[in-house]
Design a protein around this nucleic acid. Structure first.
Lengths: 102, 102
DNA sequence: TTGACATATCGATAATTTGCGATATTATAA
DNA sequence: TTATAATATCGCAAATTATCGATATGTCAA
């Protein structure tokens, strides 16, 4: 799983990315349904995040990529949409890292 | 207590500052004694950190200041020395924040 | 195939961070 | 007081990050 604490902390050092991560915790509460997809299982797509962020599609896509490279979210392509959801395993690991190693 | 997650994550987004925080967890293991000070209770001074970091005094002082502003360490001046030690309360809080809010 | 979307990537500029040397400040000892 | 040691702060150049618009790529429907 090889998490990179520095990369993770950098990913978390941005208000918008923290927001995204928070929204994804309870997606049904923060996003409108989309294509009959189960947000809890599959995630939400870039457009949904873009709209909620009120930033450009380019920025949203990049932020999601940063969170993904840090291991905080995972991605799945379905048709022309790319869905992202939290990676609770990594998030738990960081919690443990924080409690034990920091 | 008003911790600022973003500022905390920024402070942690740097290898040297993570090191400092780690060294301070068990200071007796990482620093040589200094002026008969109890490192566990009082902390370690800027010179000790500077030497171990192998960076300039200027940089060490600034990094300690960043960690302090983030609430991760506290400072105490004794004579001409400034001692820094971990702020376990804040660190625990962040752990909890991480587990509950992220 | 072509058109229309969804997403990713490129290139740019502004803002922030890194780490340094130089200098200012503070505290002590002579 | 003055010299000196410890620390803080300032100003800088280089590196990185934020965010955008433009464009490329991928996917489906007609």
């Amino acid at each position: 799983m090889c998490m990179e604490p520095i990369e993770i902390f950098k990913a978390l050092s941005n208000e918008s990315r923290l927001q995204i991560l928070h929204w994804l915790k309870d997606p049904e509460k923060h996003f409108t349904p989309h294509e009959g997809i189960d947000m809890r299982k599959i995630g939400v797509c870039v457009s949904q995040v873009t709209e909620k962020l009120k930033m450009t599609q380019s920025t949203a896509s990049q932020y999601l990529a940063i969170l993904e490279r840090a291991g905080l979210i995972t991605t799945e392509r379905i048709g022309k949409f790319t869905y992202y959801k939290r990676n609770e395993d990594t998030i738990r690991e960081i919690g443990a890292f924080f409690n034990n190693d920091i």
